[in-house]
Amino acid sequence: MLESCADPSSLSGLAWFACYLTTGKHMAFYLSFGTVLLLLVITAPAALLFGFGGALASRSGIAPLRWFGRAYIAMVRGVPEIIFFLFVPLAIDQGFEYLRHKVMCPDWSEPIRQGNDFVVCTAAKLPLNADPQWMHEIYGFLLAILAFAIVYGAFAANTIRGAFDAVPRAQIETAQAFGMTGRQVFWRVHMPQMWVYALPGLSNLWMILTKATPLLFLLGIEDIVFWARELGSMKTRAFAYPHPNWQLWYFLGLLVFYLGLTRVSEMVLARLNAHFSHGQATLAGRGQGGIGR
């Protein structure tokens, strides 16, 4: 904080704003943009991995694996996200703590479920009660990534499954006729052609994911929407910088951020689409003597 900001009530005009916009709370707001971008950058590949796994499982020749894949896609897609985010991270967290409790405190005699309470021994807490707050925050962040990856993975799985089915049968048969093994057919012909069909659906998911981060507040993670609401809300004289409700301005700021993010995403997705379409027997690819050559 700047030294001239020691007494905000004596300031006015630009000086007031300069101090106001550099408070610790505003710094947390600016940092939360980084949190959101980091979350997106980690979650997107994680969700893609879940989606890919789910798609392969649901198309598997092994029946139990196929049932598992189909059940995953059907169940997770059917549960409202807000319920999922209230329940699953808590359940995952309690699952971890339960396992640690069993390993680390075998002598504990009291039950873990006491009425409404979930009680594990102190050493089994994750993170430990005495751990600094940043460790709790990182842990919450990891839980959030896992939850997002599971939810968006289910949607991605269905998209990718459809894309696998959309690859023309003739392509696969030709590859087989060349004497390729099943593995070669999959890696060299089937999967490279799948992406072009999956990309529109996956890009939809990405755009929805970028706007889903306010759900993080259910996990105690403070994202940009939380801070915009908190900073913009009316401040009485209990605060150093009292002001009326300014949420409109903060949300306009978020609008600019999201429009920018959308623009960048579109540019990247267009390049990806051009890359995957190259040489394909599709209208976009203009590869195999189709129209528009």
């Binding site: 905000p8 408070t23 610790g24 709370k25 209990a238």
Partner: peptide, 17 residues
């Protein structure tokens, strides 16, 4: 952290009140 003067987040981002 949203109910002044009982509890709120002050301008340096700490719980206050």
């Amino acid at each position: 952290g949203a109910y002044p003067p009982y509890n709120f987040i002050n301008d340096s981002g700490e719980v206050d009140g």
